[in-house]
Design a protein around this nucleic acid. Structure first.
Lengths: 161, 161
DNA sequence: TGACCTAGTACGTGCCGCAAACTAACTTCA
DNA sequence: TGAAGTTAGTTTGCGGCACGTACTAGGTCA
């Protein structure tokens, strides 16, 4: 049942109505698709965009970063290393902890982060234009409720694999 | 602006209200997270789950499959090959086209597909339990509207990269 | 000091995704 | 019929992402 609950395509040309599960799943693919496209337009992966996004307001250590992204710390090394090679990010030794490293944006990284962030706002916002103001308010309320219900341990982190 | 619009965490302990963009983005991460966890519980990747899902009702060729998944055809080869090695999927020569290959589920693959599908229904459905029946109806309507608005060429496919 | 813990890196593995080059089979059309 | 072009799929090479294990170096605490 639930014919398309695995979104073989995020299309709208099917005439059968969505059930709730399909609605959530397909919507998530739609949004992720937009995000991925925006990232790709700047030659970034989605993870990298998220990395930059975090670094806009913070200057965390590797481990903290890994926690935020839901990654293993060993995965962080590679992620940061690649970003560093591209000149987006800098590793600076922690002043308080000889082992520690703080990751911070380079000017180029910051620029990309701002730009990317704005473009995501634009792209998703454009999508949201399909809704009336009232509907958008509904959507916010529903999302808030769902997010609040997410059992943190169960689904509290972004996808990892 | 939009402090957490790149969801460094899909959490709910922030007290600031969501804007619409955040709502969509964070919701998408939440759902993808659930999907990914379910997949991982069966030692599958999300793509593999989607593959199995498609094959439940179809027996497509490689290219058609690639189109459904939004992948390059060369990516399909690897995906199907891995699935085949795990005994989930079978390549059968197309009766109508000497070049063609039809991909179909093995019994084991079908079982996994049914199981996974059911578990996704369960997991996402459980999430949706946070909403009242009326809210779920709202959600379906909103999702349908958003999906219908997706310009097919713009965001019409699942994430690729 | 020694025993432990913590932050980060290195290494090997595997999946995913792309692009370019290739083979084999089908189609078209003169 | 046969040459030209198209289509289905594989192969190869590359890079990003994610993991687990093992390791180093720096802290902590008794």
């Amino acid at each position: 049942m639930t014919a398309g609950h695995l979104p073989d395509e995020v299309r709208n040309d099917s005439d059968e109505p969505l059930n709730t599960v399909d609605a959530l799943v397909q919507l998530s693919f739609l949004v992720q698709g937009v995000l991925t496209r925006v990232a790709a337009a700047h030659d970034l992966s989605l993870v990298q965009v998220r990395l930059l996004g975090i670094l806009r307001d913070r200057r965390p250590g590797m481990l903290e970063l890994a926690r935020h992204l839901g990654l293993d710390k060993s995965s962080m090394t590679g992620l940061v290393t690649r970003a560093e090679k591209r000149g987006l990010v800098l590793r600076v030794p922690s002043p308080h902890d000889g082992r520690g490293v703080l990751v911070s944006l380079t000017p180029a990284g910051r620029e990309l982060a701002e730009e990317g962030g704005a473009e995501i706002d634009r792209a998703i916002g454009e999508l949201a234009q399909a809704l009336t103001a009232g509907e958008r308010a509904q959507l916010r309320a529903l999302a808030a409720k769902l997010l609040a219900a997410a059992p943190a341990g169960e689904a509290g982190r972004p996808p990892v694999r």
